[in-house]
Amino acid sequence: MSAPEDQRTWQAILELPPVLDRLEDAGGIPVVELVDELAERNDLVVEADGVVYHDRGIRVPGYDATFVHEPTGSRGRPAFSVEVNSVGPRNTWAVFDKTLSWDVYLLQTPEVAALAWLSDEEYRVEDAEHFETKQDAVAAGRFSFGIFLHSGEDWQEQVEYIRQTDAPAFLQREDGSTMHPSTQSEFYQLVDSTPTEFRTSGGNAQSYLGLLELEITID
């Protein structure tokens, strides 16, 4: 599901031009650079000292993240990845099936902004009965994948929390509260997986989510 459902109602939503179509020529697009470009073009105020990658409730703080073109290769299908410049010795990246129809949105509340990407297939399976459009679903926090943009003391708090642990990521509960595992072992116990199973099964993601590979570890 597009879960855990974000507890916010997003107040400003901008559907991006087909940014993923630019990847083959660009190779990679850094998120902070992309957001700065969008903010300037649309007369928005968006501050980002760092990011937090969101994957179905898993949260990984990073200094930036990059959308990257992935060659077809052995997967037999075009793909794109999101690679996170994670805080500390963490390895965080995810590969997505580009053959699905994806839309990317810039979301804002007074406190935080985010990029979220949602496929037609996920919307059809998860949310079409409840929301008239994909944008309505995203506005209600119904997205499985995103990058939250943090600044100031809020960003420093994210960094301090993750540096105090040997875990690869945080975990958000259904009620919106956050669990902070102490070690990688504890993290994988909480997600009920092993590092190998977690990666090769795309983090136990349903196929309609379009997640092909997922790496969330700490050295």
Rank of each mutant, 00 (worst) to 15 (best):
A65E: 08
S74N: 13
A65S: 09
W117N: 02
Y105F: 13
G62M: 01
T66R: 10
D43P: 08
G73T: 01
S81T: 02
V31L: 03
V19R: 01
A113F: 03
D25R: 15
A113V: 06
V45D: 13
I58M: 10
E122D: 08
A113S: 12
H54C: 13
A116V: 07
T72M: 14
F67H: 04
V19N: 01
R90D: 03
T92I: 10
W102V: 03
E70P: 00
G50M: 01
W93M: 12
D103R: 15
L34G: 02
L115S: 00
P89E: 08
P110L: 02
Y53R: 10
R90W: 00
T72D: 14
V104F: 09
F80S: 00
F80D: 00
R22W: 12
D97P: 06
L23A: 02
L115W: 02
S86M: 07
A48G: 06
G62K: 00
V52K: 04
E24N: 10
G28C: 13
R77N: 11
L118M: 14
L23E: 02
L44P: 01
E70D: 12
R56M: 12
D55Q: 13
T66K: 09
L23W: 03
S101E: 15
V45N: 10
V51R: 04
D103K: 15
E37L: 11
D103T: 14
V52R: 08
R75C: 07
S74K: 14
R41N: 08
S74C: 11
T92M: 07
A79D: 05
H69S: 12
F80I: 07
R41M: 06
E24D: 12
G57Q: 05
V82D: 07
D55L: 12
G50K: 06
Y63E: 15
P61E: 01
P89C: 01
L100T: 03
A65M: 07
T92D: 09
T66Y: 09
P71E: 15
E47M: 10
R41L: 09
G76A: 05
R56C: 11
A116H: 05
V60D: 03
V84S: 05
D55W: 15
K98M: 14
V51E: 03
E70K: 10
Y63W: 15
Y105R: 02
V68F: 09
H54R: 15
L100N: 06
R41K: 13
V68L: 12
A114S: 04
F67I: 05
Y53G: 11
Y53I: 11
S74P: 14
S81N: 07
V31W: 00
I29W: 05
N91K: 12
N91V: 15
H69F: 12
V104A: 11
P61S: 07
G76R: 04
R22G: 08
Y105G: 03
S74H: 12
I29S: 00
R59C: 13
G27D: 03
S101N: 14
G50F: 05
S101F: 14
E83P: 08
V112M: 09
E33D: 13
F80M: 06
R41G: 04
G76C: 03
D64I: 05
E37T: 14
E37W: 06
V68E: 13
V60P: 05
